[in-house]
């Protein structure tokens, strides 16, 4: 895929909006923001993955801070009842705005240039995770420098009634730069190259898991680093603590680089070609990385302390015939691709 500018509306499936008085410290926001993001909290916008705060990753989503007391949570699924119950005992009001606010992601190398050409002056000031409001069609559009592609990119939020005119404005401004709408398949490739994980694809959330042993702890999906146990109580704290002390963490999510160029989607991972130790949840040949990459969930200690002798069994179907391949896999760092332009300041003009 050539990493081109793209718009993607699929990310903002559900949104909630909440208000908290200053210093309220609602369980899912300030208290839970990991230490290394503290600085950002004090700033204008804080998108963090909430998965880390929920032991069972029930509440996935990305919150952003619209003002000192107002937050927006964008998540894959609707969580209003859970948020409301989480608000008991706090001075927090929660509103569902899935239907009233439209979200749009503008991602890719030319995204900044398009916004600028569309007349959003000041957008060049936005550093990664920053957010600001701009005028649009008699209303306000909130633009944050965020995204789910690992690339330079922005996310835009407008009242639903202004979605069409915003779309037209961007399409017109981006025509010469080859702007185009993309769907989930393209987004999925971009996020995989960026090493980002997706709920109910790379791990099963508590809401969806029918079998109690299919949930994942944050430590099991590579988000353990976001947990700060010294910060008072948060949902799942005791369970995480218990799992760590009782060594109940059974899985680990890793990035794999696989020999050859055949994508290993949903392949079984073996140790020494014979013992089943896990499965690939997402895979592709990455044209940018020029590597055959994958995300896999493995059973510890494989992928954790034992990283040698891992193999994947790929069933590649060609002309209605399966070709079975056994390929060597290597545990590698994520992201598979790191694009400097994502964070470059000022953003580059392509």
């Amino acid at each position: 895929m050539n990493r081109h500018v793209k718009t993607d509306a699929a990310r903002t499936l559900a949104q909630s909006h909440f208000r908290t008085p200053p210093g309220c410290g609602w369980r899912n926001i300030e208290l839970l923001v990991p230490q290394r993001m503290r600085r950002a909290v004090a700033g204008p916008a804080v998108p963090i993955l909430l998965q880390a705060q929920r032991v069972d990753a029930r509440l996935e989503g990305v919150p952003s801070r619209l003002s000192p007391t107002r937050f927006r949570l964008c998540s894959q699924e609707r969580h209003l009842p859970w948020l409301l119950d989480s608000a008991i005992g706090y001075e927090v009001s929660v509103e569902e705005e899935t239907e009233t606010v439209a979200g749009l992601a503008l991602q890719g190398p030319t995204s900044f240039a398009i916004l600028r050409d569309a007349g959003f002056s000041g957008v060049e000031q936005l550093k990664v995770f920053d957010l600001a409001e701009f005028a649009h069609d008699g209303a306000t559009v909130t633009i944050s420098r965020t995204g789910f592609t690992g690339d330079l990119g922005y996310e835009l939020f407008v009242p639903a009634g202004k979605a069409l005119s915003l779309w037209d404005r961007l399409m017109a401004a981006g025509e010469l730069r080859g702007i185009r709408a993309i769907g989930y398949t393209a987004l999925n490739r971009a996020r995989l190259e960026a090493g980002l994980i997706v709920a109910n694809a790379d791990f099963t959330t508590a809401e969806h898991a029918i079998r109690a042993d299919r949930l994942r702890m944050p430590d099991e999906i590579g988000l353990g680093f976001m947990i700060d146990l010294d910060k008072g109580h948060f949902n799942g704290r005791r369970a995480i603590l218990e799992a760590r002390t009782k060594k109940k963490l059974r899985h680990v999510l890793v990035g794999l680089e696989i020999e050859g160029n055949i994508p290993a989607e949903h392949a079984i991972v073996y140790y020494k070609k014979s013992q089943e130790v896990g499965l690939v949840s997402a895979a592709m040949w990455s044209p940018m990385a020029e590597r055959n990459i994958a995300l896999a969930s493995l059973q510890r200690p494989y992928g954790d302390t034992i990283v040698d002798e891992l193999w994947v069994e790929i069933y590649a179907m060609r002309e209605l015939q399966y070709q079975k391949l056994m390929k060597k896999a290597k545990v590698v760092q994520r992201p598979f691709i790191k694009l400097d332009r994502r964070t470059a300041n000022p953003p580059a003009d392509f």
Partner: peptide
Amino acid sequence: ILELVGSREVDTGFVRKVK
């Protein structure tokens, strides 16, 4: 749980059950 301990010290799921 809800008054003496306070919901902040326990998980949402537990609060929900108690409530």
